[in-house]
Amino acid sequence: MMYITRRERFNAAHKLYREEWTLEQNEAIFGKCSNPNWHGHNYELFVTVKGHVDPKTGFVIDLKELKRIIMTYVIDKVDHRNINLDVDFMQGKIASTEVLAVEIFNQLRPHIEAYQVKLHSVRLHETENNYVEYFGE
Score class of each variant (00 low, 15 high):
M1I: 11
M1A: 10
Y3W: 10
Y3K: 12
Y3R: 13
T5N: 08
R7F: 02
E8S: 02
N11E: 12
A12N: 01
K15F: 01
E19M: 03
E20L: 13
E20Q: 14
W21E: 10
T22H: 05
L23M: 03
N26R: 00
A28N: 15
I29Y: 09
I29L: 15
F30C: 11
F30R: 13
G31L: 01
G31E: 02
S34E: 03
N35R: 09
P36S: 06
W38G: 06
H39V: 05
H39N: 09
N42H: 11
N42A: 05
Y43Q: 00
Y43C: 01
E44H: 10
L45C: 09
T48D: 03
V49W: 00
V49A: 02
K50F: 05
G51Q: 09
G51H: 11
G51W: 14
G51T: 10
V53T: 15
D54V: 13
P55I: 14
P55A: 14
I61F: 03
I61V: 13
D62N: 14
D62F: 05
K64S: 14
K64H: 14
K64T: 14
L66P: 07
K67T: 12
I70K: 06
M71H: 08
Y73E: 13
Y73N: 14
Y73T: 12
V74M: 03
I75A: 04
D76Y: 14
K77H: 11
K77S: 09
H80W: 08
I83D: 00
V87Y: 08
G92R: 09
G92I: 10
I94E: 13
I94H: 15
A95P: 04
S96P: 08
S96K: 13
T97P: 00
E98D: 13
E98M: 11
V102R: 15
E103K: 15
I104N: 04
F105C: 05
F105S: 04
N106G: 07
Q107P: 09
L108C: 14
I112C: 10
E113M: 09
Y115W: 12
Y115M: 04
Y115G: 03
Q116A: 14
H120E: 10
S121W: 02
S121P: 01
V122A: 08
R123D: 02
L124I: 05
H125I: 12
E126T: 09
E126D: 10
E128Y: 12
E128F: 07
E128M: 07
N129V: 05
N130M: 06
V132W: 10
E133G: 10
E133L: 06
G136R: 08
E137H: 07
E137M: 05
E137Q: 05
E137C: 06
E137I: 07
